[in-house]
Amino acid sequence: MMFKKHALVAATLALAALSAQAHDLWFKPSSTVLSKSDWVTIDAAVSNDVFFFNHRPLGLENVKVTGPDGEAVEMKNAHKGELRSVFDFKPEKPGTYRVTMLMNGVMGGYKDANGQPKRVRGSAEEIVKQIPADAKEVRITENVRRMETFVSVGKPSALAVSGKGLEMKAVTHPNDLVASEEATFEFQLDGKPAAELEVELVADGIRYRDGVDAIKLRTDANGVLKVKFPRAGLFWLSADAKDSKTTVAKATERRLGYVATLEVLP
């Protein structure tokens, strides 16, 4: 029971950071392509700058690693420091491993009897309890977010999509990205093409250049995005969407997000 409570708190905090867009959440893998089984270390943080530890660690309660067969892979040596969290895992079998964090929660706001704005967060049940009967201008928003990165041993294997929320379907495999070649991804919203979706790419090394230099792209009518990465290295990919297809009672808006860390080879 206590673990579930901690997991809910961690997910709520992560959603707050994502929704406010004041900070970025990310995974940073030590390796994404392996010729044979070996250890991989994942750094995870919430920061002011992508891939730079300068704010706080990411909670690992909702992080999972799954193998090519969809089975869970044990996370070892998990540690939460002052500025980052870290854990290891060892992919034993050939194929692609997925590191995923799913974040689902509810946020809301209202004005009290005196006209003062109030904010509320938590589960759908907790949100309803926090809003008084005389509240005005009540707004409840459902948040559905996914963050992931990928590690392949030997030949990459196929990556399935769940058909829920905002997802990236790999046309070009995320562990087969090369700076000199165009990559193709398909973005889906609840299993359907996410047309005209704005996607942002940020390269590692923000600390050592004058600006973020974000690359902003947009999917076509079929949710397809073609990218030619400007150089090799790690890239942070982010996309957001919103609609009214909520699954939470009294929620009028659904906000969805997708974040991935990709490694582009020379």
Rank of each mutant, 00 (worst) to 15 (best):
E61V: 00
E196F: 14
A179T: 03
R139K: 12
K216C: 03
I42V: 12
F235V: 07
D213E: 15
M168S: 02
A133N: 10
P174T: 00
D134C: 06
Q188P: 01
G115K: 04
V120L: 01
K4Y: 14
A7P: 05
L237E: 14
R56N: 06
V144H: 08
A10H: 08
S162T: 15
A14L: 12
L60E: 04
K4V: 10
G109H: 02
K64T: 15
T41S: 09
E61K: 09
A160F: 07
K5E: 15
E82A: 15
K90M: 13
Y110D: 03
K228Q: 15
A241H: 14
Y258F: 15
G165E: 00
L18F: 10
R98Y: 11
G67V: 10
A195R: 11
W236N: 08
M1W: 08
V50D: 08
G105N: 08
Y208C: 01
M147W: 06
G233K: 03
V65G: 08
K250H: 11
K4I: 09
K4W: 12
D88F: 02
S157G: 14
A22T: 09
V151G: 02
V9M: 06
R209N: 04
K93I: 13
V73P: 03
I140G: 02
P57A: 07
R255A: 02
A170D: 06
S123P: 04
A195I: 12
P156E: 03
K226S: 10
L8F: 00
V199W: 06
R209A: 04
E186Q: 15
T100K: 09
A232E: 15
K80W: 01
G59V: 06
Q116E: 13
P132R: 09
E125C: 04
K118W: 05
V227E: 05
G257P: 11
P117C: 02
F235A: 05
V86A: 06
E61G: 07
E126A: 09
P29I: 00
R84I: 04
I140D: 00
R84V: 01
A194H: 06
L256Q: 11
E61F: 08
F185A: 08
V86E: 09
A45H: 03
L189N: 15
K228D: 09
D204E: 15
D190L: 08
R56D: 07
P230N: 00
G105T: 08
P94L: 00
L34M: 12
E181D: 12
A17E: 15
S47K: 01
V171I: 14
L237F: 05
A20S: 14
A10Q: 14
L34H: 12
V178C: 06
I215H: 02
R218F: 06
D190K: 05
A241E: 06
A170T: 05
R146N: 04
Q21Y: 08
S47G: 14
A72L: 08
A10I: 06
